[in-house]
């Protein structure tokens, strides 16, 4: 079936996807596909944001969470009487049959409870629009930067993609590419001269002694790992004329902004 592909390197965090979903569904029923979404509080397309790093190395990571109409959908398994899969693969909760089924909310984080209507609700893949001739759902249509695209099952970009939880193998048709691992970054400075140290060699060594990565500081004395596997590293800084410096960094849980690493003349 068609898959929504999210390219993390193209998302600017504008929330168009989340807002377009609300524009389509809030207070607007599209029966028999779905009842109306509540004006606020439900996020059939939910953009999340996470600040990463510390001053002055800070970036924000955005990530949309949308129903993947999974091959192994738990809702379908648990409640076949009110959840159904269409021929095109989209999975819908039947609003005429699902009243009161709060239990579905506990089965999947993409399902929301509409308090007023006493209904479990979620993304329909904009099935009503697709049946009316649309080529893609609102979230994809509203994306201005091509971060969200609707692709065929055999699209080459899907190779290497993961689901929302980071699993390569799963039945979700909401896929993610170009997400980055926690990074380690810093600046090498000679405080005595008040100068950035350019071209210093920065080596990342794993606990087992393997050199995982070697970088050179840039024109501003900065270094920044790209897709280094998350873990604990010994970071060694070597620059001509300076005593080597060794520090520890652990990116297992979060990005590591090491700040200024001060080197001293040898």
């Amino acid at each position: 079936m068609k898959t929504i592909l999210f390219d993390a390197s193209r998302c600017n965090g504008c929330y168009n996807c989340q807002i377009a979903c609300k524009d389509e569904h809030c207070k607007q029923p599209w029966l028999p596909y779905t009842e109306a979404q509540a004006l606020t509080g439900e996020f059939w397309c939910k953009l999340t944001q996470r600040d990463r790093g510390r001053v002055p190395m800070v970036w924000v990571e955005y990530k949309p969470l949308i129903c993947g109409h999974c091959d192994n959908c738990k809702l379908l398994e648990a409640a076949p009487e009110c959840v159904y899969r269409r021929e095109d693969g989209l999975i819908l909760i039947d609003p005429a049959k699902a009243k009161g089924r709060r239990d579905l909310v506990d089965l999947c984080s993409n399902v929301y409870w509409n308090e007023e209507l006493e209904l479990p609700q979620k993304c329909t893949g904009c099935a009503h629009l697709i049946d009316d001739g649309w080529k893609e759902p609102r979230c994809v249509d509203a994306c201005s930067t091509d971060a969200l695209t609707l692709v065929d099952e055999d699209d080459p970009r899907l190779a290497g993609s993961v689901d929302a939880c980071g699993n390569a193998e799963s039945g979700s048709h909401m896929r993610y590419i170009n997400q980055t691992t926690n990074w380690i970054a810093g600046m090498v400075v000679d405080p005595a001269a008040a100068e950035a140290v350019i071209g210093a060699k920065v080596t990342f060594t794993s606990a087992d002694g393997t050199v995982a990565c070697e970088l050179a500081t840039d024109d501003f004395g900065e270094f920044h790992t790209k897709n280094l596997p998350e873990g604990a590293y010994t970071v060694t800084v070597e620059a001509d004329g300076f005593a080597p410096l060794t520090v520890q960094a652990d990116s297992t849980e979060a990005d590591v902004m090491m700040g200024e690493l001060h080197v001293v003349a040898a």
């Binding site: 600017n12 002055p56 190395m57 800070v58 970036w59 955005y62 900065e222």
Partner: peptide
């Protein structure tokens, strides 16, 4: 500030 453009596009930030 690490404003909304810096937060996504910046290679480096000079506060």
């Amino acid at each position: 500030d690490c404003n909304y453009a810096n937060a996504v596009h910046a290679d480096m930030w000079i506060p």
